[in-house]
Simulated scan of single mutants.
Amino acid sequence: MNFDQADAINQAIRRLSLWHRARVGELLAPLGLHPGQEALLLELARSGPMIQAALSTALGCEPPSVTQMSRKLEASGHVLRRPARGDKRASVVELTDSGTALVEQLRRLWRGLAEETVAGVAEPSVAGLPELLNTLASNVRRADRPGAQ
């Protein structure tokens, strides 16, 4: 691959990432949420109550980030944190009724954002996007590991 092609790919991914996160922030602000908190709430809705370490793995972020998000969401009444049985150092995070209601709003917001993002893209291309984007993410993650070439 030549530099111009590499630059075009990297710049497009960078712009998409920046603009998508900014758009997420705009959409979440009226709900009193910040980017990343919606992912935590949606994961709890998918998986049910989880210890923070498992939630960190599921979200692909650092444990301190999950702790901070969980604390803020607990303060706003959307999640409940309680000690894990058998391990007092671990906390289980679960949705409250308020959090469950908020998840329904987030699902509508998430669908709208996806539709907005893929507007003008042919349906066969849209259908293949999750696999393509997950492959790209896996490639970058693999390259970030110690000992990767």
Rank of each mutant, 00 (worst) to 15 (best):
Q105T: 14
S56M: 00
D97Y: 02
L106P: 12
N134E: 13
R142Y: 01
L95V: 09
G32P: 00
R111K: 15
M69L: 05
L106R: 07
P49V: 00
A84D: 12
L132R: 08
L80K: 14
G99Y: 03
M69S: 03
T117G: 04
P64Q: 07
V118C: 05
C61Q: 07
L33K: 05
S91R: 13
A22P: 06
E43P: 08
V126E: 10
G25D: 14
G77N: 04
L106W: 06
L133D: 02
G86T: 13
A39M: 07
S65H: 09
Q105A: 15
E62Q: 13
A101D: 15
Q11S: 15
G77D: 05
P49I: 03
S91A: 11
M1S: 11
D87L: 11
Q11N: 13
A45T: 00
A114E: 07
L73D: 00
L102D: 04
L113P: 11
Q37S: 05
S70N: 00
R23M: 09
E94D: 13
R142I: 06
V79A: 04
V118N: 04
Q149F: 08
G48Q: 02
D144A: 11
E104Q: 14
D87T: 12
L73H: 02
A39K: 04
S65R: 11
L55C: 09
P35N: 00
E43M: 11
V24K: 10
L136I: 14
A122L: 10
W110A: 15
T67R: 00
G60D: 11
R85Y: 09
P130V: 06
S65L: 07
L133I: 07
E38C: 06
N139P: 02
A54Q: 12
A122V: 09
I9Y: 15
L102S: 00
A58T: 04
Q149L: 10
T57V: 14
P130L: 08
R82D: 14
A29M: 01
R111T: 12
L95M: 10
R85C: 05
R23D: 11
H78L: 11
P49L: 05
E94R: 10
A127W: 03
L59S: 01
R108C: 10
A54M: 11
V103F: 04
I51V: 14
V93Y: 05
E123M: 14
V93K: 02
M69D: 02
A39I: 03
G60M: 09
Q11H: 12
P63F: 01
H78I: 01
A8S: 10
T135N: 06
T96A: 06
A54P: 00
R21I: 01
L132S: 04
H34F: 07
P130H: 08
V92L: 13
A29S: 12
